[in-house]
Simulated assay, not measured.
Amino acid sequence: MDYGYMLGYWKRGAPADALETVQAAERLGFDSVWTAEAYGSDAFTPLAWWGASTSTIRLATGIAQLSARTPASTAMTAMTLDHLSGGRVILGLGVSGPQVVEGWYGQPFPKPLARTREYVAILRSIMARQAPVEAAGPQLPLPRTGEGTTGLGKPLMSTLHPLRPHIPIHLAAEGPRNTALAAEIADGWLPFLFSPANDAQARSLLAEGFAKRYASLPPAERFEVSVPVPIVVDADVEAAADRLRPMIALYVGGMGAKGANFHFDAVARLGFEAECLAIQEHYLAGRKEEAIAAVPTRLVDEIGLIGPAERIRDGLERWEESVVTRILVQGDRAALEAIAQLRA
């Protein structure tokens, strides 16, 4: 089991001690630091900033959103950062959801799996730099032709030579079909709101994708599964759970729309459908405190690690026996240090 540090995104500016914590994660032996984006802070800039003050820790987006950038822009950014960091980039990607894609980026949200497949294929072609890039589409044609164009576009090849011809691409996925897609076309899978209770289903879906895996990719044995695990070290288990309930309530109840919330679906599949319905009903009605209170401790326990260090140690055993290959610690400096001590 590898361990990384999940920083995510922020609302009121970067945490004051973020750089020091990233440097501490590197000293403590964590192999990667992961950032995210929704519709505020972006995923790449923090990695460039903190990466300049580190030397070995891998720099990973967890996740960069497909609709935020064209495939060419994403490839340029990843290749540039890979050069500057000495080959430390992991490119984590995700489709997000229709509310963000259409409401924030002003992009359509049809056939997200097909769009992901096209997007990743273009990235691979650009970063390999073997020939000018062409893509048939239909969602992401290169070069673009037809109505509304000048007709002057032509296939181009990156002027930047890659430091590495194969930057690892990991796909975020919560649903069955895109989980299988990750195993088919990517180097890793980034589940969210995952539990070791999902293990058998996850292995089955990944096996489905591995059966169709591209021959040009590293073998399935090297496929990585990296999952953010919220961790709170506290002698009081309920107090620890209280620190995570607002986050779970937000994703289950407030992200997406009723009937179109991938996070709701992921948690409901863990056997918490009734609880999810109650959380969502409260949240969408503006009763956030009631939504937070409706998150049961056993749900927090299912997707996170909470309580005193010895309880967290016991909980880690479930994760280490699962399909997960890397735990991304989602927590404060105390959580990082506790996990480092438990590993030692």
Rank of each mutant, 00 (worst) to 15 (best):
E337L: 10
G106T: 09
I167M: 01
E337M: 05
L84H: 10
L160W: 05
L171W: 03
R144M: 12
M76H: 04
P112R: 13
D301I: 07
I167Q: 00
T179Q: 06
T56A: 12
L206V: 14
V252M: 01
S226P: 07
T45W: 07
A215K: 15
E310H: 14
T21G: 09
R222D: 13
P143K: 03
E320M: 15
V22S: 07
Y3L: 14
G253T: 04
A197W: 02
G286T: 09
I122P: 03
G51P: 00
R213L: 07
G286C: 05
L152V: 09
S41N: 15
G209D: 12
T297A: 12
L205H: 02
M127G: 02
M157N: 00
E317M: 09
H83L: 09
A78E: 04
L19K: 11
I57L: 10
T21W: 11
M6H: 10
A172C: 01
E337H: 04
P71M: 06
Q65S: 11
Q99M: 14
R298M: 08
G286V: 04
G151K: 12
A293C: 08
A309R: 13
A36W: 14
P143F: 04
V295R: 01
E224Y: 05
G253R: 04
E289P: 00
E238H: 08
A136N: 10
P228F: 02
V252S: 01
G13C: 02
V95D: 06
G13Y: 07
L316M: 15
A202W: 05
P228I: 03
Y5E: 02
R69W: 15
L277D: 13
W34V: 09
Y214M: 14
T45K: 05
H282K: 10
G331H: 08
A68V: 08
V120P: 00
A340F: 02
G153Q: 12
V295E: 03
S322M: 08
A48Q: 07
Y39C: 05
S158K: 07
D31H: 15
I292Y: 06
G4S: 09
E174I: 12
E224K: 12
W34I: 00
I169W: 05
F44N: 03
R58M: 02
A173R: 00
S96C: 07
A344F: 09
G271Y: 05
A257C: 05
E289N: 10
R318C: 06
Q65Y: 06
P141K: 02
P168L: 05
R318A: 15
A274S: 15
R203L: 13
I90C: 02
N261Y: 07
D199M: 01
E134N: 13
T70E: 05
A135G: 06
V324N: 05
